[in-house]
Design a protein around this nucleic acid. Structure first.
Lengths: 205, 205
DNA sequence: GCTTGCGTTAACAAAAATGTTAAACAAAAA
DNA sequence: TTTTTGTTTAACATTTTTGTTAACGCAAGC
């Protein structure tokens, strides 16, 4: 039977994203995706040509979405520390809605160098350029220990993303439940700010 | 022809580790491993039963080795900051000899929860317990902003490991050559210490 | 020299996944 | 009603990879 009005493509995409990026079932087969979407497997090829091609599309969309939400924050006209506080918040919040997206991005960029190129090509402005001036000023005013924008950003992203990437290990090592780990991740917003700036994060009013 | 004296098993292991952990070819097939080792593919099954089983063994060995090198440092009787400085150095150095080991560990622990359990079970003493007292003292003496041992360690490991995990992306974004990235990683030893303690790392004498 | 057993190989079998096709179907247009 | 067009399905084909087996060879011990 025909599923209402050409929504099939969307349903497939959403279910696939759910399996890949939310549940972390990175090896999910086309058959499993089809099952989750309640459609015949051939439709995946009908709409997306191949599994590989579908992956490209899903990743592009997800990365684009994350980039929009997160990176634009660095372009806002805001005091440096507030900007960074928002950046941390945005990354962690986004990570929590797609807990395995970073895992996926990383394993795909390791596996497929071309995809890395494509992804980065679309990233016109380097994040490091967006903070360069403000960071320099912070340092010059003696409010922050000297650090290059590249290291500063890697620090920031590492502190935000790693706990998602290594979630299975960290949860197990520290014997945390899913909820406890959720809490832990939320705490990290303050912890990260503190670690970076060595001062309390101003509470959100 | 018979390859000299039962070394075959070792050769296979080493070549497999090279492909998986050094070159990051995570999807390498048994055939490719056999080729790299210069042996018939059936030997892989002869020695390791299945691909899956071989993976277990390789990962166990690699993780065990890393754990020994790195984690024991936290047990040494040393001043806190020196201990941490050595820890950073050990992790980064080890990461550079097996650039893709962390990628592998993470994707395997996401894919296979049982392996996570097994891995963590062997980790008798939690790292967080090894630093708890000294960390508390640092904080109590006002030399460090309050932080739980769990967050402190996650910070530390995140800062050390993430740049390896995301190497393809980071290198491309910042347009670094392999050598430049190598330098970048070495610089991070100081950067991380600085970020954690907010003071220069004492130079190694 | 014969046997025994491990290491090795090629050839085969099976499994798991992707990709293709022709035909059925449903809805809108003619 | 018939045609047409885009969607969906089942059945088939192909590819890729893993796993198995039977036989061969070599070296040690009898």
């Amino acid at each position: 039977m025909k599923i209402e009005e050409a929504q099939t493509e969307q349903v497939i995409k959403e279910k696939a994203k759910e399996l890949f990026f939310k549940k972390g079932l990175i090896k999910t087969t086309t058959q499993e995706i089809a099952d989750a979407a309640g459609v015949n497997r051939a439709l995946i090829h009908y709409y997306f040509r191949s599994r590989e091609h579908m992956l490209s599309i899903l990743l592009d969309e997800a990365m684009e979405e994350k980039r929009e939400r997160v990176k634009s924050i660095l372009s806002f006209d805001l005091p440096f520390r507030e900007k960074i506080a928002r950046y941390i918040d945005a990354i962690i919040t986004y990570n929590m809605t797609y807990p395995y997206l970073e895992n996926f991005i990383i394993s795909e960029t390791v596996r497929n160098k071309d995809r890395t190129e494509a992804y980065c090509a679309r990233n016109q402005s380097r994040s490091s350029d967006l903070i360069r001036d403000q960071l320099a000023e912070e340092i010059q005013q003696g409010r922050l220990a000297p650090i290059t924008p590249e290291h500063f950003l890697v620090n920031l992203i590492a502190l935000c993303n790693y706990p998602m990437l290594a979630k299975p290990i960290l949860r197990t090592i520290h014997g945390m439940t899913e909820e406890a780990y959720h809490e832990f991740l939320l705490e990290r917003k303050q912890v990260i700010y503190m670690t970076i700036f060595n001062e309390e994060m101003p509470s959100v009013s």
